[in-house]
Design a protein around this nucleic acid. Sequence first.
RNA 1: GGGCUUGUAGCUUAGUUCGGUAGAGCGACGGACUCUUAAUCCGUAGGCCAAGGGUUCAAAUCCCUUCAGGCCCGCCA
Length: 501
Amino acid sequence: MTEQNENVAFDPIRCEKATTLLQQGVSCYPHGFERTATVAEIRERFESIGHDPADERFALAGRLYTVRNHGKTVFADLGDETGRMQVYIRKNDLGDELFTRFVELFDRGDIIGVRGRPFRTKVGELSLWVDELQLLCKTLTDLPEKFHGLKDTEKRYRQRYLDLVMNERARETFRVRSRIISFIRSFLTERGYLEFETPTLQPIYGGANARPFTTHHHYLDQTLFLRIAPELYLKRLVVGGFERVFEVSKNFRNEDIDSSHNPEFTMVEAYEAYRDYHQMMDLTEELVLRLVETTHGSTSLVYGENTLEFAHPWRRMTMEEAVREYAGIDVLALSLEELARIAAEHRIPDCAKATHQREHLILFFEFFVESRLIQPTFIHDFPVENSPLAKRHREKEGFTERFELFINGMELANGFSELNDPRDQLERLLTQDRRRLEGDLEAQMIDHDFINALALGMPPTGGVGIGIDRLVMLLTDHASIKEVILFPQMKTARESEPAEE
RNA sequence: GGGCUUGUAGCUUAGUUCGGUAGAGCGACGGACUCUUAAUCCGUAGGCCAAGGGUUCAAAUCCCUUCAGGCCCGCCA
């Protein structure tokens, strides 16, 4: 019997009830129900109804969240996707057989369909006066406690369905997430962008500095990597003549898991020909502002303890200016010895390896500035050393036309004037590959096909990638990325282990 | 990788300081109740306290190990 399978959480009493229902000729899993309204629709239409029931009957369907049994009358709360509504059920109206079946064999958590007329109870609650009722799905497990609900964080992540059933906040978060992604798609589409899908399984990974997941294709007998970014493929499309492209992509990075990192995460990357990084900052700023307005009806929002303001214009400063402002250090005006001394004084990590002022600049920026960028801020003009895919700056030697967007100390977006000089790109990837072979687990591979694509000519192009998970965190006021990913990566709980070997 | 911290009934939890046979609410089960809404009232069952080991006459409680979480730091542009 399935009920005896130890990996299954069936409640024996509910199983018995299901069996009894079947014996009575009642299907526990019927094939449909003619629903004529949602809870929200009835709430809207009968907002001002009084105690007398409406003339019109409606059919509602949903899950039983609470049942208050008064003997020959029952109040219950029925919840569908749009909300909950109280239903009023009387023995008089249903008849003995159906009423008894409902009271004895239906449980909290079951999904039912009801028909009846809206009215307002004596204490003023809009309800449905039920005269007909039907089981739509018999539940075989208990629901969490009705008042405290489900709080256990781990359980909420591992059994997200249960979280969604119990917690409106969780439902709202993922509703917003879905809307954000739709909004991004229409925002870009309206501006003439085409959405494409590029490979998730890649023979050579690239487009970011990160450790990849490795897998193997049996038929090809070949190693493949899960993509860490779609960048190099999207640029091939720009080479091919698509001048505005984007992809909402799942990327996979084989790194640590913490409150802002999940091994698979969602990004949108967009590329537009004949644009530069200034214009991509404009695009990013407009997109995020419009998202904030759409989700909050305002240009500002509260995130944790901070109120963030997104109205134009956002602050834009170079990395060099940022370090000067936040740390009072003019990195490029100091000698390597002086920089090393400051680094030692503040115990700034990794400075021992830095062989150039520009490398100190990056480290100083991360140490002194990053976490203090609360309001939306673009930092631009990054050293060439850590920007292998960005075009060299039109004026500043040793720098690239790259920007990152920081909000609440988090990196939200990264973009640049795309490097389209194939010889320069080859040089930079050769440097990356050298580092990789020297043991840098996050350095990039050389993708010769990509370089050959550039050799065919890519127009001057601006590109940007925006981390959607972090954007959702921001827009839903969550501190952990696990709250905004439906099924975050969790270590597999071992099932009872037979002691072998 | 480092620090702190959590795991007790289906759910929410008390008990851990200072060792002495595990307590509650909700839920479930049985009963009463035809306008309740965390319904109410009466009654019943349900836990070897995450797992393993140790100390002890005696361990949920003290010690060690392991497992799975959470928070912070490091790392990850």
